[in-house]
């Protein structure tokens, strides 16, 4: 296949071109609040610092807080108004792990009932992947069948070859976008070879591993082992940050706000780390912290695979890297008895 390429200093022009049809999101807010944020129309300085965002791109599809609809109480009773349609997003620079996370999330949002907020955003969005050539030491994506330099979950895939990016068309949507994109050069065989080499090197840089082969069996046989889960949960402070920053966690709450006669129904991220999440008037099935830690681990590595045949983890390492007490999912999985 003929690949294209673009000089890095022309990236601004490329994004500008795409911004006529899409709202462009790029890595923004260097540091612990990095996320896929609205592009300011000129800055491509993120290329200097970007490894991955702290807040995963799920936030662009399942926002931390979103208005589901507004309601108003008038003389004739209540009326409901849906929010207006959003612009189509183009997310530039999404990493292969995060591309996969969206494919994983698609399962839950299409299961039984179609989610009317997440799915239109997904269908309208273009994902432009950027190979991850400097993975963190907390990354273990290769254990989940992901290679940091490659992705089939995005529409276009870019690889850093030095002064240029190699551009590969992955999906039909990506192909269509390329046909409408001007000013790209054809890549040479030499460019493709350099990209392949970079991808291979990136793959080898992921040294952290988990063994997924017997995981299901081990989790089942350890499920009732309260001692193990208490030990695992001991240092967890139940802050929930691992679930908020997990690219596949999707739990949400629904609540209302109202001022005078107008209000809105919202949904916002929620977390199984909190006892209130499952609390009922008379009892709580997951009152204890160890039960909630067990739920998080088993939901990702046991229950989600039972439902959708895919582990709800991409090995992005955010839950390890950004945990305030250095809780480590790899350790928890690696030390499972049985």
């Amino acid at each position: 296949m003929n690949h294209k390429k673009i000089n890095k200093k022309d990236l601004g022009n490329l994004l500008h071109q795409w911004s006529k049809d899409y709202t462009i999101f790029v890595p923004s807010n260097e540091g612990d609040t990095a996320q896929m944020g609205l592009w300011d129309g000129s800055d491509t300085g993120f290329l200097d610092w970007y490894r991955n965002t702290a807040k995963p791109p799920k936030a662009n599809f399942l926002p931390p807080v979103e208005e589901m609809f507004r309601f108003q109480k008038g003389k004739e009773g209540h009326s409901i108004k849906l929010p207006s349609q959003e612009h189509q997003q183009l997310i530039f620079g999404i990493r292969p792990c995060d591309g996969r996370s969206l494919a994983i999330l698609d399962n839950i949002f299409t299961d039984a009932y179609q989610d009317p907020y997440y799915l239109p955003r997904r269908e309208g969005a273009v994902l432009v992947g950027l190979g991850c050539l400097k993975p963190y030491d907390t990354c273990f994506c290769t254990s989940l069948g992901i290679s940091p330099g490659e992705s089939n979950d995005v529409d276009l895939m870019l690889t850093d070859t030095g002064d240029e990016f190699l551009i590969e068309e992955i999906s039909d949507k990506g192909k269509q976008l390329m046909e409408l994109t001007a000013g790209l050069e054809d890549a040479t065989e030499d460019d493709t070879a350099r990209a392949s080499e970079a991808k291979g090197k990136a793959h080898d840089k992921v040294t952290r591993k988990i063994d997924t082969q017997h995981l299901s069996h081990k989790l089942l046989s350890t499920f009732e082992d309260e001692t193990y889960w208490e030990k695992v949960a001991a240092k967890c402070i139940a802050c929930g940050i691992c679930t908020f920053l997990c690219p596949t966690c999707h739990c949400f709450d629904i609540s209302d706000e109202m001022v005078k006669k107008e209000g809105a129904r919202f949904r916002c991220w929620d977390s199984c780390a909190f006892p209130l999440y499952t609390k009922m008037p008379m009892e709580n099935p997951r009152e204890e912290k160890w039960q909630r830690v067990r739920q998080k681990v088993c939901h990702k590595f046991e229950f989600y695979p039972m439902a959708f045949d895919v582990i709800a983890c991409t090995g992005c390492g955010r839950c390890i890297r950004l945990c305030p007490v250095n809780w480590d999912i790899c350790q928890t999985l690696g030390q499972l008895p049985g």
């Binding site: 039984a112 999707h250 949400f252 629904i254 949904r267 499952t278």
Partner: peptide, 17 residues
Amino acid sequence: KRMKCGIGKCGRCNIGN
């Protein structure tokens, strides 16, 4: 169980699979 969405998405009524 405590529920919010009622349609298998919000996660809180999950017990086992």
